[in-house]
Design a binder for these strands. Structure first.
Lengths: 211, 211
DNA sequence: TCCTGTGAAACGGTTCACAGCC
DNA sequence: GGCTGTGAACCGTTTCACAGGA
């Protein structure tokens, strides 16, 4: 239960969980690694390897119990508790995230929104009052935010990350196009749409020059 | 020049490019693999390996010429041409993307926006008229969109992807939480914020249970 | 028979270490 | 001396193939 688990495994676990949720809706009680693989975009052997890192959840000859496995995956991913999220940056991306219904549905509660723009500070997003970024530390500490989302310009990201972690944040979702340096043990996930677009651009260009 | 290049290499190339852009601003003419590694969050050896897959761009004893390497990377990534993008889904995420200034700056021009909601169809986003999704094929074909961004509910994504590709789209940026099945040779990049958040949740939970 | 769980083999990516050029 | 370019070693991940339980 305490081995090193790869990033790719974790991503696939999320896919499996989505697949199981869909399956439960359709009433299936049991599912094979084959079917899970199909929906998760991988292979049956990979599904079994992934799951076997955490235990033996299937029945040979039968497959996996949908509801049970779903529950197990939630627990493995740490989704049996709710997470408190502070959103830094009330711009376009911030507001899209804030209104994203799946977010709360999946166990992530936005408990605070902060912004550097004095024009935004003090206004409300639903029940949430927008605070100045100067209050980042206090906000994280007092509201006990576990996770911080940085939807800010790249110049500001490093400083805000350090302050957030100093105040007790335990993980960061980073939308800024910089490689953040944070203390060991603080996970950082980067989301960068330009990078993804550039990867598409590369793949297409490559395919062309190869043809 | 025609080897199989890994996803991780491409992602790092994007980071290197950002680093070079920043360096150019600061006036440095030359840069070592060491420094590039620092900014890209990797190692010097990795930088050299990554670059060596495409040619020899450095001078031994000296390093890499900033401007030249920047230009080379742009060309490798296929960013020497502009890309035509059709955005499907004019919701929160769609609008955030649409207004994202870096997007156009990096060579991606949004040439069309489509939505399934009749209330949105016909309204304007700046110069762009929102079209009904029923016109997806015609839009992609007539406006010669290379890339399609799917910011739509998961149920709709697979169908739209197939239709977009059928009409000539060459790559897809997918915000829906489903594994799209597309013809061989069509790159798909998935962006899923919930997955990233779940990865954070997992990492923190894991760290706790390990302590 | 069916399908899981898992060692072993194959593969691919990263790190090392050094030869080669400035 | 400094720093790149690169084969070789290393290491983690995926695939294979099959033993074993339902």
């Amino acid at each position: 239960m305490s081995r090193r688990v790869s990033e790719s495994t974790i991503r696939r676990l999320s896919y499996y969980l989505r697949a199981l949720e869909a399956l439960e809706g359709s009433g299936a009680a049991t599912v094979s690694s084959e079917e899970l693989a199909e929906r998760g975009g991988t292979t049956a052997a990979q599904v079994r390897k992934d799951l076997s890192q955490f235990g033996s959840f299937g029945k040979r000859g039968l497959g996996y119990a949908v509801k049970e496995l779903e529950c197990t995956l939630r627990r493995i991913l740490g989704l049996h508790v709710r997470w408190r999220v502070a959103l830094v940056g009330a711009g376009r991306i911030g507001s899209a995230l804030f209104e994203y219904p799946n977010f709360a549905q999946r166990g992530f509660d936005c408990v605070a929104v902060l912004d550097a723009d004095p024009a935004k500070v003090g206004s409300r997003w639903g029940p949430i009052l927008i605070r100045p970024v100067s209050e980042l530390e206090r906000t994280v500490r007092e509201l006990e935010a576990d996770l911080v989302i940085l939807a800010v310009p790249p110049e500001a990201a490093q400083d805000l990350a350090e302050r957030a972690v100093g105040a007790g944040a335990r993980g960061i979702l980073n939308f800024a196009a910089v490689q953040l340096r944070v203390p060991r043990g603080i996970p950082v996930k980067d989301v960068n749409l330009v990078f993804e677009m550039e990867a598409l651009s590369f793949a297409i260009t490559q395919a062309d020059s190869h043809a």
